[in-house]
Design a protein around this nucleic acid. Structure first.
Lengths: 335, 335
DNA sequence: CATAAAACTTTACTCGCGTAAAGAATTAAT
DNA sequence: ATTAATTCTTTACGCGAGTAAAGTTTTATG
């Protein structure tokens, strides 16, 4: 930088200022610097820069599973929003493992990020550890909430999203039976279960739950196995299935197909299946999956905005806000 | 660190040595340090550590699309292998955009990684830029090859993998028609096309190509659109389709289903469809997709090994090796 | 037990930049 | 044009380690 200051004719402190915020120097000098930059292509050393900064311009993004297209999708939108602000997103996946989740957080801590966006694993997460982390580093949770954590939450309004789906299904056919995992890893699953029961009762129907055994994040497989069992047994309370999420539905549809059960609205179909989340693949299932889409864009945008409010200290630490966005019914062929 | 040296009773240079390689100090001192570490939980500053290292212990991993389960899967395996070596993987996705690909590389350069594993976009990639990068930083390409780049390549043997599939299909029914994109982004696509033609000719069959229009990485959609067109038109040379990759096949299957064309081996089916890659979702398509699985594990392992050979300077820069692994036929219901 | 080798401590310098303070130069406002 | 406010330049120090060199202590070897 010293050398670059010499050849560019600009003092080092001014250069330093420029690299921290190009807008903080006079336009004329900004231009001079940029011209010199092209000529000598100097690049400040990332490590030296951050060593003396209390906060870096990095923002951590931690999701449970990077290989889950759902998280890949929302992470991508979040990344874009972070880039817009001039910060640098650092994307980390926890592979469904709680140890890796906290390891990711600790690694992030060591890069002194300005803030962190965390979609926690859920039930398996190390609540206490996450809590202390959120107190140390400006954070906001998204997708999955953890009660009692000192960080704002941005996510979907499961009450509403499940509600409109139950309404729709009841209006257009038999009331749905709820298909879910017995012990879900994800807190949204519990909310959806309750939302289903509440919606059904509000409409005067008796709720029915089918709870698949199985642990972990292999939702398609669990949906497939239990789906096959259920379809074979023929013991469905109604001819309509509402899956707790699309990945379960994808497995279920695969099982139904294999068992020769026709799913959909067309004549000859004996089953309706709906999902939740508008998973990227739900567009290509057979039949295409009727589902409710989370407002990815809004969730991503609001998460980033909320984080920056935190970073800039606009919100006090104790204002634990939750922002929920409504889902949108996506009607396709399966229900 | 100075403070920690004081309280732990170990000199700072020894601590420094320990943090760089815990095995480089006497076991007794190692124990003393670790005990002190638990008591005072000190953590060296990441930025200060790397500032004076010419090479850090980071290894960059760049893939075209993080939201593509295929890349998510192989990236995950690669991450595991890197972690085993004591290095830290830094995963970056290019979202299919060539500018982002080189931006990722430049960002990596600024963290002075020990090496980089790159799965290039392919045709769209900035060849020259990647080449200079590979000359500066120890790199190995995987998945997609770029000719004339000064870095080893590890990938799949498309000749073999397409070959066994064509053999299988010809042996069990009508010879396959090849379904692909007209102008594929990925170099593997070209290899597969040629492998298909060669295999067909070797077996005395006439090759047939169906080439879908469309650009980009929305393979399912392209497979769906073109698949529907083709199925509707009824102008298929044979009753067997071999798709250039599973994502096209997923779209194709969806289109076939929608058009009421039954796919598979069972009586009543009028079409066979096969894919390539053993995409995580190919297990749940309707019908389940017959495909050929790339040897993810071997590719990941060998890529990392090759990179470390480069890093440690065992291989000379001009030895441009290519390692290809055979695929494995995965017989399921669609063909 | 003597000796060599290995591991450690002390001391001191380096890296590349952040940043504070004081003064000089430029720009904006009256 | 004068003054005040910005913006720069100069100078100087700090950050948290890596690392080299010389001297000291511990461990292995015979």
């Amino acid at each position: 930088m010293e050398d670059f200051a010499a050849v560019s004719g600009i003092s080092r402190p001014t250069l330093s200022k420029f690299f921290n915020d190009p807008g903080s120097v006079r336009v004329s000098t900004k231009k001079r610097i940029e011209e010199a930059l092209e000529k000598y292509d100097y690049q400040p050393n990332l490590y030296a820069i951050n060593q003396n900064r209390r906060l870096t311009k990095n923002i951590g993004v931690v999701v449970p599973y990077l290989s889950d297209p759902f998280f890949a999708k929302i992470a991508r939108v979040i990344e874009d929003h972070i880039l817009e602000t001039g910060y640098k997103p650092v994307l980390l996946g926890s592979h469904g493992r709680p140890e890796l989740e906290i390891e990711n957080l600790e690694n992030l801590r060591s890069i002194k990020p300005a803030g962190v966006l965390l979609a926690p694993l859920g039930r398996a997460s190390d609540r206490a550890h996450i809590d202390t982390f959120c107190n140390d580093v400006p954070s906001v949770l998204f997708d999955a909430n953890i009660d009692g954590i000192g960080a704002p939450f941005v996510g979907s309004n499961n009450e509403q999203s499940v509600g409109i789906m139950v309404d729709y299904l009841c209006r257009t056919g038999e009331p749905p039976t709820f298909f879910e995992m017995k012990s879900p890893t994800n807190p949204n699953a519990f909310k959806r279960r309750h939302a289903y029961i509440a919606s059904m009762e509000a409409l005067g129907h008796e709720p029915n739950l089918i709870q698949a055994a199985g642990e972990g994040w292999e939702f398609e497989e669990i949906g497939f196995q239990e789906g096959r069992r259920v379809v074979r047994g023929g013991k469905l309370p109604t001819n309509t299935i509402l899956c707790s999420n699309d990945r379960l539905a994808i497995g279920f549809l695969s099982a139904a197909f294999e068992e020769g059960v026709r799913v959909g609205l067309e004549p000859g179909c004996t089953l309706r299946v709906a999902g939740h989340d508008d998973h990227p693949f739900s567009r290509y299932t057979c039949p295409t999956l009727t589902t409710v889409s989370q407002d990815y864009e809004a969730i991503a945008k609001r998460s980033v905005e909320t984080l920056f409010e935190r970073i800039e200290g606009k919100t006090t630490a104790d204002s634990r806000e939750e922002t929920l966005f409504d889902g949108r019914l996506v009607m396709r062929a399966s229900a």
